[in-house]
């Protein structure tokens, strides 16, 4: 495991994301909501909401929408989805920590559509790891590892993890050599 960003860098990256989102927010008069995907996207959404002026903030648990439920051995733990507002006609910023295959974003989109009909959904991720298996593209990326020229020499089975307080002891981004990927 090696660290590729420390707490200070993470804070800067979140600032970058916030700035990019802010430019789009100033262009409309629609209500805006920010929704984080458990279990790091929700923390990231909170950080972003602290920097921007969001009318609504929510948390999405996508467990029940995973496309591999009948393949994996056990049922993953279900947590709560907390979106206590109607997302109809809203501009919704969907937030996740790392974008890789795109499967959790697909699940999150389906889950959002079951909750209502937003006017537009934007995708904001802290890290784009590359390795897409679905045609999904982020609107905002702070740290782009998808390009070969990132200079980090990531192997295909390397896992990129974002750590955020208070769930993790300190903020940071790390690369783990391999190991079973628990979340999609």
């Amino acid at each position: 495991m090696r660290q590729i960003a420390d707490a200070q860098r993470v804070s800067m990256l979140i600032d970058q994301l916030a700035d990019a989102i802010k430019r789009d927010m100033s262009g409309t008069t629609d209500p805006w909501a920010i929704v984080g995907i458990r279990s790091r996207g929700d923390l990231l959404a909170q950080r972003l909401a602290g920097r921007l002026n969001f009318d609504h903030i929510g948390v999405l648990d996508i467990t029940l929408y995973r496309d591999d439920l009948s393949e994996i051995g056990m049922q993953p733990t279900v947590r709560t989805t907390e979106i206590p507002f109607a997302i109809d006609r809203m501009q919704v910023v969907l937030v996740d920590d790392v974008l890789m295959t795109g499967r959790s974003v697909r699940a999150a989109l389906q889950s959002l559509m079951d909750l209502g009909r937003p006017r537009r959904v934007w995708l904001a991720v802290l890290v784009d790891r590359g390795g897409r298996e679905l045609p999904i593209r982020p609107d905002y990326v702070a740290f782009d590892l998808a390009q070969d020229d990132s200079g980090l020499g990531l192997a295909p089975d390397n896992r990129v993890e974002v750590m955020l307080q208070p769930t993790d002891p300190e903020d940071g981004i790390v690369v783990c050599s391999s190991g079973p990927q628990v979340s999609i």
Binding site: T63, L69, T80, T81, Q110, M113, D114, L115, G116
Partner: peptide, 16 residues
Amino acid sequence: VGFLEVSTRSVKKVPA
């Protein structure tokens, strides 16, 4: 607890 919310939505169904 995670399933309580499903019954409050407009689409009261999850694909699990």
